[in-house]
């Protein structure tokens, strides 16, 4: 290959080409998938851990009295209750942590500046990563729910509840994402790993009631629970799968409206704060430094 050939190629080929944003998002998603696939150990760990969690809560349910579960309106099986919580836990993590992880990883790889020097908006990368984590979480869902059913869970799975569940999960991600955006901003600002996202996952699991119904919390803690979008997402998804009802049920409708309100208020605030942090990082020259 001589320089002449290269020069001819570059001389002849167009310079003002375009790539659609959808293609870019897919490319970004595939890039994350390829990178993650290099860490097979952690994927296997993640799957094993989650499956064992299902088994553990299955065994734990043997000694749990369903009274409080029933009082909260979730039927009579603690296993059903916990199963749904575990099945969607990855979506919670995805919505809260994926953006922070994007920034963190790009900083860690040293690719953040490289990406920011292209005309493509960073949002595309966010979307790609989010989509990757969404599908990754979906695989968990697809494995966990049938496992639960084999172990004797009585959750109602039919075309309507599945559609309702997917809609509600999408709403969950949308409503939780503003918190994820803020968390990403914090990572950009403080550059201390992703501990905030990690803590957020715990806080959400506790207050959102992944493992116990929030009605057993004392009122001041329950008050905090009601402030988190996750509480409403979990409530709606559980209620739908346990009773086999769809979006049109008033309790689910109520939860969905609350989630939409969260999203409507959350995005403008989160994006504004994130932009502010991003611009000040550009001013201080701290974007790519790990």
């Amino acid at each position: 290959m001589t320089v002449d050939e290269i020069l001819t190629l570059f001389k002849e080929s167009p310079t003002d080409t375009k790539v659609s944003n959808v293609r870019k998002v897919i490319a970004a998603m595939l890039r994350r998938a390829k990178i993650r696939f290099n860490y097979k150990t952690w994927m296997i760990f993640d799957f094993a851990n989650t499956l064992f969690m299902v088994f553990t809560y299955f065994l734990l349910s043997f000694i749990i009295l369903p009274e409080d579960i029933a009082k909260a309106g979730y039927g009579y099986s603690y296993f059903d209750f916990a199963l749904v919580g575990i099945a969607i836990s990855h979506f919670i993590t995805a919505s809260l942590r994926s953006l922070a992880l994007t920034i963190r990883l790009e900083q860690f790889y040293g690719t953040l500046e490289s990406v920011l020097s292209t005309p493509t908006d960073f949002v595309i990368l966010f979307m790609g990563d989010l989509l990757y984590y969404f599908f990754y979480s979906l695989i968990f869902l697809i494995i966990i729910l049938p496992t639960g059913i084999i172990l004797g869970s009585k959750i109602v799975i039919n075309i309507w509840t599945v559609l309702t569940m997917l809609t509600l999960i999408t709403l969950l991600v949308i409503a939780n994402l503003p918190i994820g955006i803020l968390s990403a901003g914090m990572v950009l600002k403080f550059k201390q790993g992703d501990p905030i996202g990690w803590a957020l996952t715990w806080i959400n699991q506790f207050f959102g009631g992944t493992f116990f119904p929030i009605i057993i919390l004392p009122s001041f803690l329950r008050f905090m629970s009601l402030g988190l979008p996750l509480t409403y997402s979990l409530d709606a998804i559980r209620y739908s799968l346990i009773w086999g009802v769809t979006l049109l049920h008033e309790r689910i409708l109520y939860d969905s409206i609350v989630l939409i309100i969260y999203a409507l208020i959350g995005y403008p605030i989160a994006i504004k704060i994130f932009r502010y942090i991003y611009n000040s990082a550009r001013k201080e020259g701290k974007i790519g430094i790990y």
Partner: peptide, 25 residues
């Protein structure tokens, strides 16, 4: 200047990806 490339992707994959970000089909 640091790494500026995805170390856990192949050289080829890196180029195609960054090409896309630069609007090159």
């Amino acid at each position: 200047g640091g790494r500026a490339l995805y170390w856990r992707l192949s050289g080829y994959d890196n180029l195609v990806f960054f090409g896309m970000l630069q609007n090159v089909p």
